[in-house]
Amino acid sequence: MGWIEKKRVSLAGSDMAYVDVGSGPCVVLLHGNPTSSFLWRHTITPLSKVARCIAPDLMGFGDSDKPADALRIVEHQRYIERFFDALDLQDVTLVLHDWGSALGFDWARRHESRVRGLAFMEFVWPFPTWLDLSPASQNLFRLLQDPVDGRRFIIEQNGFVENVLPGGLAHPLSEEDMAEYRRPFSDPASREPIWRFPNELPVAGQPSDVYAMASAYHDWLLTTDLPKLFFWAESGALISRDRAGWYERNLTNCRTIPLGQGVHYLQEDHGERIGVEVAEWITQRRDAD
């Protein structure tokens, strides 16, 4: 089912679905909330011409199983760890977005010898206070974290898919694309993984375990010499223009690419360009070796 035929791998009793196309250097693309590997379809088209592109559906998303556990970030960490080991992924370039960035950066920090490079956009970083989010993001996440109104919005109304996702785009999605994003969350019970992620956002030291994880990988990201490719867009939801400038000045061995207008789901507005840029970056580094 879905946009492309997927493979499956069993991880501790639950199956994770994933796209595996192309050949060449290994590239793993990790999505966030409430999307799936479908988010990367425009990026994978040019990228798969020069690389093997592996894009899993996080557990509880896309065509992966929806296990009974709460799917806090720590559970997602374990599934991602098992996924990389089950496929014996080495010399990996990671392409990361949203909660996929938290999981990818965390894995890369702990397995730097298996990482060849990092490409990332609209990523999760440890927000020291609520004021470090934009006013719009503050209002959104305070709603999403409300145990009554937030749950009703996400679980009963499917508001993250129907409202937050389209609101994170510079251009509207087609009805066919929206149908694919709706498909994994057809009933309220299936939406629990969507509800869990907003409550994991690391702000002002809470949740303490997620904040500690994000602080560790953020400190590592600022010091590691791994090659980096950083994409940002005007009006970013997690990465403002000012914040993007800060990263441009402070990230080592990093090329920064402004994409123009965008909000959060940059792959929908600039997916092909992201794929072309990553493909050229990989090819240039390969030729220089």
Score class of each variant (00 low, 15 high):
Pro193Ile: 00
Glu248Asp: 11
His264Glu: 07
Phe185Lys: 01
Glu176Ser: 11
Lys228Ser: 04
Gly236Val: 04
Arg243Ser: 12
Trp246Phe: 14
Arg243Lys: 15
Glu234Tyr: 12
Arg255Ser: 03
Pro207Cys: 05
Gln206Arg: 11
His270Lys: 13
Phe197Cys: 13
Asp269Phe: 00
Tyr211Gln: 05
Asn253Thr: 10
Leu221Ser: 00
Thr256Arg: 02
Ala212Pro: 06
Ala204Glu: 11
Arg182Trp: 11
Leu201His: 04
Leu201Val: 09
Phe230Ala: 00
Arg241Lys: 15
Ile257Gly: 03
Val263Met: 11
Leu222Tyr: 12
Gly245Lys: 13
His264Pro: 11
Arg255Val: 07
Asp269Tyr: 02
Leu251Gly: 06
Asp225Ser: 04
Thr252Leu: 13
Arg249Phe: 06
Leu201Tyr: 03
Cys254Asn: 01
Pro184Ala: 09
His218Pro: 02
Glu234Asn: 14
Trp220Thr: 00
Gln206Val: 06
Asp269Met: 02
Gln261Lys: 15
Pro198Cys: 09
Trp232Glu: 01
His270Ser: 10
Ile239Thr: 06
Pro258Ala: 05
Pro193Lys: 03
Val210Ile: 15
Glu176Ile: 09
Ala244Phe: 04
Cys254Lys: 02
Trp195Cys: 00
Ala237Pro: 08
Glu175Phe: 01
Ala204Arg: 09
Asp177Gly: 05
Ala237Asp: 07
Leu226Thr: 03
Trp232Ser: 00
Ala179Arg: 13
Trp195Met: 01
Pro207Leu: 04
Ala189Thr: 14
His264Lys: 09
Leu266Asp: 04
Ser208Trp: 13
Ala214Gly: 11
Gly262Ile: 09
Pro193Ser: 01
Leu229Ile: 09
Ala244Gln: 03
Glu175Arg: 11
Val203Trp: 06
Glu192Pro: 14
Glu234His: 14
Glu200Pro: 09
Asn199Cys: 12
Arg249Lys: 13
Phe197Asn: 08
Glu175Thr: 09
Arg241Ile: 14
Tyr181Pro: 02
Ile239Gly: 02
Gly260Phe: 04
Leu266Ile: 11
Pro184Met: 06
Arg191Ala: 05
Thr223Glu: 15
Ser186Phe: 15
Ile239Phe: 09
Leu266His: 05
Ile239Asn: 03
Ala216Thr: 12
Glu192Thr: 10
Arg249His: 14
Thr223Gln: 15
Gly260Ile: 05
Pro202Thr: 03
Asp177His: 08
Pro207Val: 05
Cys254Gln: 02
Phe230Gln: 01
Cys254Val: 08
Phe197Ala: 09
Leu221Gln: 00
Arg196Asn: 14
Leu226Tyr: 03
Phe185Arg: 00
Leu226Ser: 05
His264Asn: 12
Asp187Ile: 15
Val263Ala: 08
Trp195Pro: 00
Tyr265Met: 02
Val263Asn: 08
Gly236Thr: 06
Tyr217Cys: 00
Leu222Gln: 14
Pro198Trp: 02
Ser208Cys: 08
Tyr265Arg: 05
Val203Leu: 08
Cys254Gly: 03
Pro207Tyr: 07
Gly205Asp: 07
Arg249Tyr: 09
Leu259Thr: 02
Thr223Arg: 15
Ala244Ser: 05
Thr256Tyr: 04
Thr223Trp: 11
His264Leu: 08
Ile194Val: 15
Tyr181Thr: 02
Thr224Gln: 12
Ser190Val: 09
Leu229Gln: 07
Arg243Pro: 13
